[in-house]
Design a protein around this nucleic acid. Structure first.
Lengths: 244, 244
DNA sequence: CTTTCGTAGATTGTTAACAATCTTCTCGAG
DNA sequence: CTCGAGAAGATTGTTAACAATCTACGAAAG
């Protein structure tokens, strides 16, 4: 039995999370500079860990940094979030396939995922779009973990951390989402995994991605997604249903 | 030991490259600890940039780091490199599709890619398996860049940096590769992009991935890939030809 | 003999000062 | 009035010292 040190999270990661939160609550906006000394002073620590935290965000693509010129909050476009979703679609379906082939429905981790799915049914969670999104992504992440594909799940987790920020920054409205339909799709996915129905699982996953991106597209100013629908990126997400 | 202000490359990135090189030449082996102070002393710099460079490698999955316990060189398995190739297959075919739809054959960057392809024809390059692999990956990276999909190419580039190290660490022999066949496949790919033949391009890309992984499998001890062929990971790479 | 505990050494995590680089603003030439 | 050289300030990059944590080893207890 191991008792991990309670923090469990490094100072740099805390810094990164604080900056993510600041973007989510609007304190930081795209294009804003991240000045190491200022952030360090604000958090009451020194520049070292702050610098490290900023580099973590840069690896995720949430901030852009140029040599000797510091970091600025990234200005993602609608196409950026499509890139994120096309990665999630492709790598996600592979992870799910793999998990199913491992007969993972009997593992205790599978039940952990179910608990996370139940969180989506909590009215308190449903009341807050941000909580809802976090819970949704946490559930998905738990499913991917079942595959044991560490490198692929690592990429997926990286995209998951970015999604709420991107949605916020892009001004996408996610309020109109149909919670019942979302949960039903996830139930289908879980059931397909439990019963080893590979094709049903991949269909459920495709449905989820398509619905989510479709939701985003509705809540986004038409002018700024002009032309996007002509690109294979969008085409792939919405129309193409081949399974990686 | 001079690590000095070369244009574009940060000290941390130089440190990361030095460590990659050390693994390639066998100085560092899987499981070896990376001690910040030692590396700093060896390179004649301080611990700060060394620490930063190690974090870069950790983000790539080349070293594993545990809180307050430092970093060790990762011990990749054959399955790890399959994960890398499945990512490259999936995201690569998407990037190529996208590039084709952008009518990118007229862009000057396309010619840059052709120059990199010609490097593969240089007998001097062909004589050194490591040079050959680097040139091969550089050419592929140039093709992906044509898509303009920054997040996806960034993931692809990350995998490209790891591949030579993984190959070295796993003891995969890449010597028997048929250079003429490799170049011919790439020529097909280039021609398909130039003439906007989407399906031909995706077929050429699938061929390349399949040949490469097939080559790896031949040069690897059978005992250690036992069972791998049953997993959807391997199945996907070798048999499944759907295009993401 | 095994286990537990405690200390010393090794190593990472953090800090603050210093150096190098970039940005901004002034001021003079054209 | 515009443009550019150059100094002053702001900010990042680097360094070395300090603090916190982990590891290894050995002695004492069971």
């Amino acid at each position: 039995m191991s008792l991990e040190p309670l923090p469990g999270i490094s100072t740099a990661e805390m810094v990164a999370q604080r900056i993510r939160d600041a973007i989510l609550e609007g304190t930081l906006r795209p294009g804003d500079r991240l000045i190491e000394a200022d952030i360090a002073a604000e958090l009451g620590i020194s520049r070292g860990p702050v610098r490290e935290g900023i580099r973590l965000l840069a690896a995720e693509g949430l901030v852009v940094l140029r040599r000797n010129r510091g970091a600025v909050v990234a200005s993602p476009t609608f196409e950026d979030i499509l890139e994120v979703y096309v990665v999630r679609k492709g790598l996600g379906s592979l992870a799910l396939q793999h998990a199913i082939s491992l007969d993972v429905a009997t593992a205790p981790e599978f039940d952990d995922a179910l608990v996370l799915l139940d969180r989506l049914r909590d009215p308190e969670v449903q009341a807050d779009p941000l909580l809802m999104m976090d819970a949704d992504l946490a559930f998905q992440s738990a499913l991917f973990d079942l595959s044991g594909l560490e490198r692929i799940t690592s990429v997926l987790d990286q995209t998951a951390r970015d999604i709420p920020v991107f949605v916020r920054v892009l001004g996408i409205t996610y309020d109109s989402v149909d919670h019942a339909a979302l949960i039903e799709r996830h139930d289908h996915l879980v059931e397909a995994i439990r019963t080893h129905h590979r094709d049903a699982a991949l269909r459920a996953w495709d449905d989820h991605i398509r619905s989510t991106v479709g939701e985003f597209s509705r809540g986004y100013p038409d002018a700024q997604i002009e032309g996007i629908f002509e690109l294979p990126l969008m085409h792939h997400i919405l129309d193409h249903s081949s399974h990686l």
